[in-house]
Design a protein around this nucleic acid. Structure first.
Lengths: 217, 217
DNA sequence: TGTAATTTTTAGATTAGTCTAAATTTTTTA
DNA sequence: TAAAAAATTTAGACTAATCTAAAAATTACA
């Protein structure tokens, strides 16, 4: 098995790898709130274990076995988040830190039974896809609301920003996963957007919020 | 907060403290599968944090704050065991190691909601009492089946030994928590005991098993 | 294209938790 | 009650993960 620190590095590298060939030492250091020198040490260790491809000064990528471990941790994270929201009634902005701890519970049998207990959910409370027990999942292609024109509609399917403050704001506005809306106005001056919700209520969101709210492509 | 190692030491000291004033270094070392010298080091650390009363060569006891932490870990352990058995359908002999990991999940809010979700269970799958959110619980006074005479009855309410092999044996025999029986025979030669179950089936158990199966005093 | 800026790595410490081996204290027992 | 045995502690070392400061490599750009 791998240590907690190793698991967190693999997960971080996985997240940072989206769409890029190699992840830099500094990127990893920033995402884990640690120093570049600490990252270098750990990269050597992970390379020795054949979990990453690493050449000095050239950044890293996950090997298939490293990716498998990372995806499994993400599976556990998202299933526990789903559990916390659906079974224990937490809000979607409260579950991240708890799931960060729970994702390191090792038993595969446990997580598979948890998956079954919740009837195999496909997405976590933030709209992220949950890998199945073989590590398979399809990432829905999403685009921000800011890419829509007037009179176009969409269903909120994801968020780009996962910070508590952003999620709390969305919750308060009723802008949660699965909600349908139509763009009724785009303010030329600041690119803010007016949405009409299914219940006819209008919500005015800033360009920044529109950039961080995702709908299917 | 405390480290994982610190939590395990406090829990171990708590369990070993049942009915005795002080726990010895060697007892702790044996229960944690570590060396006496490692224990001594940790005892100094826990004493510095005022979680134990420690005088060199004299053994240790928990302070009120140390006991509070220990009881909280035990609360979490037992609630997760209950969850694993009642919600995820694990057998009572499968849950200990998983709960050993889960008991270190830190959130108090999480564990209180889990408690509520399961409707405030009073006992874990092995019959051990579950402390409430204030750390309060009453330890039912129990005695072994071997203390019964012929024609006396009882309800299985706890087990002294928690090893997988013992629990699996009991499970196979149908000797689980809550089961009622009457002693129909005690073999003088080896002190083995014959039980008649509610369904009239007779089960013959060794003296050792009878010593490890508990009923209310 | 060569110097400056940035990034990354190395060198050397530090902390938590552990270990072995030796020294010390307590307990047992002859 | 004094040696022997057992228990406990100390001393010194090791590993994992981290840090700071300095050195080395890469990249940027004048």
């Amino acid at each position: 098995m791998n240590t907690l620190a190793e698991e967190n590095y693999l997960k971080s590298i996985y997240h940072l790898s989206m769409g890029v060939a190699n992840v830099s030492t500094n990127q990893i250091a920033a995402s884990l709130n640690t120093k570049a020198s600490s990252v270098t040490d750990m990269l050597k260790k992970l390379a020795d274990k054949a979990l990453i491809n690493y050449t000095r000064y050239q950044g890293v990528s996950l090997t298939p076995s490293g990716e498998k471990i990372a995806v499994n941790i993400i599976r556990k994270h998202r299933l526990w988040e789903y559990f916390l929201v659906e079974k224990l009634n937490f809000k979607w902005d409260q579950v991240h830190d708890m799931a960060e701890e729970m994702e390191h519970i090792s038993s595969a049998e446990l997580i598979n039974r948890l998956d079954k207990f919740m009837d195999y959910p496909q997405h976590d409370p933030h709209g992220e896809p949950i890998p199945d027990c073989n590590g398979l999942f399809n990432t829905p292609k999403l685009k921000p609301i800011s890419a829509l024109a007037i009179n176009e509609s969409g269903v909120i399917s994801g968020v780009r920003d996962h910070t508590t403050s952003f999620l709390q704001y969305l919750e308060k506005q009723g802008l949660t996963i699965g909600i349908k809306f139509t763009v009724t106005e785009i303010i030329a001056f600041d690119h803010s957007v007016v949405l009409q919700m299914e219940n006819k209520k209008e919500i005015h969101i800033s360009r920044e919020v529109a950039n961080n709210l995702l709908i299917p492509l």
